[in-house]
């Protein structure tokens, strides 16, 4: 899987690149408008992360260029401007998703995987990990081919964990992903613990070979042995 990161801020670009490389993506990067245009015209990518404000031009023009070349790349806009207009414009120009800075790396990983899966797997959205099978679109979980019933949020949490498997997930990132923006001031995110406890119990009872590990004070980690 090839991912192109178009971001002018060196440090941010580097950190995104390292994070994506951990997921075994082949990552390339561009720091300005011209470099970005060169890359998107010359190569094929599975996903492009696109910053809107670039030296030398607007990121939305890159989207336009892609559209003109009839390229089917998945594009996620990453912008410091969390404005509805930018979002609507970007999505209208063919972007697949919009992520406002600052974001959590686990959120970025989940989004990248989601857009790649949505397009390249042709609807066959099934992830297999050991004896666990997840049908992402149908929201079904099978352990040893036996269906396991999960509540909506439990499923969302599991999907998020699987997208970031073996990586430490900050509890704020998890809360934001599952409960949305409204919850951002809720103190300590302790309330997410009860959902995790239920999910853990269900995984354990059905004998799933997955383990949700709590990292005290920081967050959680899905261990795939």
């Amino acid at each position: 899987m090839k991912v192109l990161v178009i971001e002018d801020e060196d440090e941010l670009r580097n950190v995104i690149v390292s994070s994506l490389e951990k997921e075994n993506f082949l990552v390339e990067s561009a720091a300005d408008y011209t470099a970005a245009l060169d890359k998107v015209t010359g190569y094929q990518y599975d996903c492009i992360l696109l910053d809107i404000m670039l030296p030398g031009g607007n990121g939305l023009s890159v989207l336009n260029a892609l559209k003109k070349m009839k390229k089917q790349e998945n594009v996620i806009i990453i912008s410091a401007k969390n404005s509805v207009d930018d979002k609507v414009n970007g999505l209208n120009l063919g972007a697949d998703d919009y992520l406002a800075k600052p974001f959590h790396l686990s959120e970025l990983t989940a989004r990248v995987k989601s857009v790649i899966r949505r397009k390249s797997m042709n609807g066959q959205n099934v992830i297999e990990l050991n004896n666990v099978k997840i049908h992402v679109d149908d929201r079904l979980l099978y352990v040893n081919s036996e269906p396991v019933s999960l509540h909506r949020k439990e499923f969302d949490i599991l999907a998020y964990f699987i997208a970031n498997k073996n990586r430490l997930i900050n509890k704020a990132a998890l809360a934001e992903h599952i409960w949305g923006d409204h919850i951002d001031q809720a103190d300590d995110f302790e309330f997410i613990y009860s959902q995790i406890k239920n999910l853990r119990k269900k995984l354990k009872d059905t004998g799933a070979q997955l383990e949700i590990q709590a990292v005290y004070g920081v967050g959680y980690k899905l261990i795939v042995p």
Partner: peptide, 25 residues
């Protein structure tokens, strides 16, 4: 927003290093 994003994301990457102790985390 950008410096905040850099700081948070770098620290997130740092927390994933296995060499860190619980207290440091």
């Amino acid at each position: 927003q950008t410096p905040l994003a850099i700081s948070i994301n770098k620290l997130e990457l740092l927390t994933e290093k296995n060499s860190l102790s619980g207290d440091q985390l």
